[in-house]
């Protein structure tokens, strides 16, 4: 009976640990290790196609497709790919999915394909995708690789959407093509031009770094308070011990 309980307890703990691991791998891409705001990866599409929110989402969606399927294949065949030719194999896999996305966009979303132009083909050289294959998918089981890829791709899409939304609102006075401020609004044309991309990214990086720093300061304050409390407690106990003596 006790043994059974022990077994069930250890199984539950294992499941908890596994769930926590999946959760952590998923969340890290969205926030802690966000590919754009923290790792500053994939800058070419992040700056070039984010002049509207819908373009940002479309590029994010295309990247999500390529990253998820590439991670699935790389992780599935990781035992069979020789180390020496792994990068070449990753590139073949990534380029295949990029070309598939290119054809599918041309066929089913021609307007979006026209807007994204050459940047769809350039997903092949997005260092985020190659980086995840090398750093994660090649070393981890399929499910973990997929969770990591989904988290990273969604984090990338979120960042591109933020950039696109800011630039569209300020540069065009609209969001998703819907006018927000009426005809009296004078759009800041610079925001939909390349300098607007750099400006928005700069301010967003500043904002996210400020948030991170604040969080770290809070954590260090909590740690400091805990340590002080611990020391005070120890001091009290020593004093009471001494009095007792």
């Amino acid at each position: 009976m006790v043994a059974q309980h022990k077994y069930l307890f250890s199984e539950t703990m294992k499941n908890f640990e596994e769930a926590a691991r999946y959760h952590e791998e998923f969340i890290k891409g969205l926030w802690k290790e966000n590919p754009v705001f923290v790792a500053v990866l994939g800058m070419c599409p992040a700056l070039a196609v984010t002049n509207t929110a819908i373009n940002g989402l479309a590029m994010g969606g295309a990247t999500l497709f390529v990253l998820t399927f590439s991670s699935l294949l790389v992780s599935s065949f990781r035992r069979y790919i020789p180390k020496e030719v792994r990068i070449t194999t990753f590139v073949i896999i990534i380029a295949t999915f990029v070309t598939i996305v290119d054809f599918l966009l041309q066929a089913f979303l021609p307007a979006i394909h026209k807007e994204l132009g050459a940047f769809v083909a350039l997903i092949v050289v997005n260092c985020l995708i190659l980086g995840r294959q090398e750093a994660f998918s090649f070393k981890n089981p399929i499910r973990l690789a997929m969770v990591d890829a989904l988290g990273m791709a969604l984090g990338f899409t979120f960042a591109l959407f933020c950039l696109g939304a800011i630039r569209e609102i300020l540069g065009n006075g609209s969001l998703f093509g819907v006018s927000l401020f009426g005809p009296s609004f004078e759009p800041w044309i610079v925001m939909i031009l390349p300098p607007g991309g750099f400006l928005s990214l700069g301010f967003l990086l500043l904002f996210f770094n400020w948030l991170k720093q604040r969080q770290e300061q809070k954590q260090s304050l909590v740690y400091l308070a805990d340590t002080v409390a611990e020391v005070a407690e120890k001091k009290d106990s020593i004093i009471s011990l001494k009095r007792g003596v």
Binding site: P82, I92, T99, I100, Q106, A107
Partner: peptide, 25 residues
């Protein structure tokens, strides 16, 4: 062999998608 197989499957997948999407494009 690894690169050849990867290239072969990549080519097959691309030809299939191309043939499927060409009339629509």
């Amino acid at each position: 062999a690894t690169l050849g197989i990867a290239g072969l499957f990549s080519g097959l997948a691309l030809v299939a998608v191309f043939l499927f999407t060409r009339p629509i494009i």
